[in-house]
Design a protein around this nucleic acid. Structure first.
Lengths: 335, 335
DNA sequence: CAAAAATGTGGTAACGTTACCAGAACGGCG
DNA sequence: CGCCGTTCTGGTAACGTTACCACATTTTTG
């Protein structure tokens, strides 16, 4: 493994000069630059990012902390982050918290040890400890997807409340009066926001008495089980709002197992679209968040924050949500 | 940011002693250990992985190079890798080559700079350059999914040829005689292997004259377009084999747009299952590769290779493929 | 034409950790 | 009692790079 020193000797210059050529910094005459570049090639020299990081205090590494990378919503987000990072010669480390606060803490610790330059965080809970810890280790943080209380921060998210509101109004417009919502953990902001949007829509339509809110987890199983509970209610709801993609799938499967037709008997709407290629035939009416774009913008904001080219003030970027009406929502024919 | 030195001072010991406590190496009396641990806590000391890596020549970092992380096949694989790596306190960097040799090369260079301890590589092409380059930089490599020529290496894969063979025999058993295969790039081993399995099955059944092989790319668009070509053939095939999940989806969509019913008019079989949760109703007959398990085993093998606890000989691990028969393959009723 | 600014190069030290070598204190053994 | 092995601790240097300062040379400016 040749080092700057070897290259320097070969090119007949000082190590620092080699460094300057590689980093394109400072003044270098064309002649020496060429000599150095030739030496680099001849020796197959590869600069050592580790040593560089130690000295310069910049590791050119970001981390993306999500709950589960196998959720296509986060996979797209990850790809967005990766693409922007790659363009700027940054590397990304991915971490899966599985919605566990303990895992989040463990990862935060690991990332501090690794001296990453910045972290893109989808908080596993409403807790501000992780952010404070990272900041105390000189690591910039941009929050994604979910709000966090108790601390100011840069954040990239969508307007869950409004989108939920819109979806419910859509259902109300189709004649539905008994609409249930199945959502995730009470501790997660998106979960709460979607419920709030739901409640507001009902209130505006004078249907507040019909609230049917079910908290659970953001996964298929929870959606499945809660649907069975929901359908025990009397009178039965005529529409269900699943607060993320997995919940929506759980709902559809449960209804199928209960021999309830969608949308003839019950309409279903969801949040977070599944990738188009996944469905032979798109079917579910959803509020689609621009996951890839969110990843891109968040990475962009983080990189700017790291380079210090931003004012002190924290930024909040709210992206629009697209409502896609498909077959799963239909006029109410069941009272 | 406190360092070992600060901790050492506080605990009244030498820096090296702090290092020993943190790494659980060498002899330490209980008293000093406790003193050091207390100092670590009081100062909020976090060891610096960068400095550690520079000195010890081990970064505790792996890289997973795949073609596209948004393909659920690779996402599962990634999760398998991540889980094993995490257990051993290794961190994983993900890289997407998008099947481009240039990108693969760029990433290899980056990974060498970062001094990763090992790389899990899904080769974007049959080229051995990347492996040779990484090895010349003291980086261990385990190849995943696809064979590579021109160089011996550890590899974890499945028996594509046999699985393809089996799928085609299944179709032949259902009475199909004109079976087309739509596959990926000619340069990719899995692409070729699946064609070989296809050809052998036809040969064994005395149907060699009916070969219908279409090379393209491993994505939906290619599957879609080639399907339209395939169906121009006369006489039309009665079954199509899509050599990966995206191609299969492209096929299904194309047939739908052509008003051709699956499986009444044409049977379809695929490779690489989509995650169960994606489908309300599983439908496609597939050869399912154990992606998560492949990731786990490959990471395991790589870590062993890194720790030097393996003999010199390269290992080839071939995992079984599961054939899942579903509705998209049915008896031939179209001659 | 002197002074100031731009250009080009190098020396030294430092980033934070651990490898390597050394040595002290202690107990057990012949 | 002297020797050896075990247990515990420390000093020094090195990993490969770049920050910082210094200086020489050339070009620009008033």
């Amino acid at each position: 493994m040749p080092t700057v020193l070897d290259v320097a000797k070969r090119a007949g210059v000082a190590p620092i000069t080699v460094s300057r050529v590689i980093n394109n910094s400072g003044y270098i005459s064309l002649a020496t630059r060429e000599r150095v570049e030739a030496a680099v090639k001849e020796l197959g020299y590869v600069p050592n990012t580790i040593a560089r990081g130690l000295r310069s205090k910049r590791t050119h590494t970001l981390a993306l902390v999500v709950t589960d990378i196998t959720n296509p919503y986060f996979t797209s987000m990850a790809r967005g982050v990766e693409d922007v990072a790659g363009e700027c010669n940054y590397t990304v480390i991915y971490c899966n918290t599985d919605e566990s606060e303990a895992k989040e803490e463990k990862y935060a610790n690991m990332l501090a040890q690794r001296q990453v330059d910045g972290v893109l965080l989808v908080p596993s809970c409403g807790n501000e400890n992780t952010i404070k810890f990272l900041r105390s280790n000189d690591i910039d943080v941009v929050v994604l997807d979910r709000h966090i209380s108790g601390v100011e921060t840069d954040i990239v998210c969508t307007d869950s409340k409004n989108a939920a509101n819109y979806l419910i109004k859509l259902l109300i417009g189709l004649g539905h009066k008994r609409i249930a919502i199945i959502t995730g953990q009470k501790e997660v902001s998106t979960s709460v926001d979607r419920v709030t949007g739901y409640q507001q829509a009902l209130a505006e339509a004078g249907l507040s008495d019909n609230e049917l809110v079910f908290y659970g987890a953001f996964n298929e199983q929870s959606g499945y089980e809660l649907t069975k509970q929901v359908m025990m209610h009397s009178p039965k709801p005529t529409a269900i709002f699943g607060a993320n993609n997995f919940i929506a799938i759980g709902i559809i499967k449960a209804l199928r197992d209960l021999n309830i037709d969608v949308p003839a008997d019950v309409s279903v709407v969801g949040f977070d679209d599944l990738p188009e290629y996944m469905f032979i035939k798109p079917f579910l009416t959803v509020a689609k968040q621009p996951a890839y774009e969110m990843g891109r913008l968040a990475a962009d904001l983080l990189l700017k924050r790291i380079s210090g080219e931003l004012s002190e003030e924290y930024q909040e970027i709210v992206l629009p949500i697209e409502i896609i009406e498909r077959e799963s929502s239909a006029p109410n024919k069941n009272g």
